[in-house]
Design a binder for these strands. Structure first.
Lengths: 182, 182
DNA sequence: CCGATCATGTAACGGGTTACATGATTTC
DNA sequence: GAAATCATGTAACCCGTTACATGATCGG
């Protein structure tokens, strides 16, 4: 469901076409954070069928045509409703990150791994997280350079804070594992 | 895929049956963090078909039979391989929480909401997070009382740390939004 | 001429959720 | 007598990913 509103939200700023939506997301967000084609194009079609967006084909000579989508009044209404609603902001989602964080799930079963291997696994994760933080910070300074809306920068900083928390916890967790005899 | 290994990992400790696996997860993890039937039972069947677990039906008089599953050697091997592997510990997952955190996604579009409503939304989220932290801390003290493995408590604490980071960020984010003119 | 970039799509699969379906016993 | 608990399952659906498929232009 979120992809629908990521697209619709993008079209709230200005009309656009599939390829641009995709590249804006991947460029802005540094790398893997994109929409895959297999979801992007069918979603756009579906939104059109539902009357939330309107398509106009823009022919270009010497280049493939662009299917430019514009958000309709009904699309704006749908988006506005979603934005205002509490959908997805519930307490029910509170344990999500446990279930979805495979490193956390594995951590619960660390006793089934030799101590040495367990320690190595945590240390590897620490390195990964350090790299992630570095990348996020690089992206952050690019955002500041490009004078991106400070609110968007602030949201990005939430990512950095999250990974810094993770790094701190990993350090504590590593000590806890090292303390164990077996 | 994670459900497979959550089940298999549980069976590494001791053999069990569907209903018990389910209630252990929901009880231990406080509430909504369970497996739904629609996934639990088919997964158990699939694991049996793959030879990773072995089923024995335990008749009880005056109660429905229990289908008790025991992990096989091949199941242990499969689980051990997964646990040792780096599967799911990648950098590729670094932006996951942005995409999957609907409050974050909405935050990017806050300009399309009246300032007053945006502030209310953030304040509501702050309340939700405060409640979540309180609940997680209650669960934590129950764990300590029940003398749960300190490693599991430490993993639980990661959840608490995460939500405390979120709370801190929300406070900063609220200030940022309040600063804006429109 | 090869690979990158621009541009659009479809088909198949996989994992998870919701809802549906059954039925016995125990507790209030 | 109703509701909760114990216990098992299926069917349909939704969202997302991977892989496949096409084709033109531009830069090296």
């Amino acid at each position: 469901m979120s992809v629908k509103y990521i697209i619709l939200g993008g079209l709230m700023f200005s009309c656009s076409y599939g390829y641009e939506i995709k590249s804006q997301l991947t460029q802005k967000r540094f790398g893997e954070f994109g929409i895959n084609d297999g979801q992007l194009y069918p979603t756009l079609k579906k939104l059109e069928k539902e009357g939330l967006v309107m398509k106009t084909v823009k022919h270009q000579d010497g280049a493939p045509s662009r299917h430019v989508y514009t958000i309709t009044e009904s699309g704006r209404a749908d988006f506005g409703e979603w934005l205002e609603s509490r959908e997805g902001e519930d307490r029910a989602f509170r344990y999500d990150f446990f279930r979805k964080d495979i490193f956390c799930i594995k951590s619960n079963f660390l006793r089934f791994l030799e101590k040495k291997k367990a320690i190595e696994k945590i240390q590897r994760q620490i390195e990964t997280v350090k790299n992630t933080i570095a990348d996020l910070k690089t992206a952050r300074s690019h955002m500041v350079e490009r004078k991106v809306d400070p609110l968007h920068v602030k949201i990005w900083e939430y990512g950095i804070m999250n990974y810094e928390t993770r790094l701190q916890w990993l350090g504590e967790f590593l000590q806890e594992v090292k303390k164990r005899r077996k």
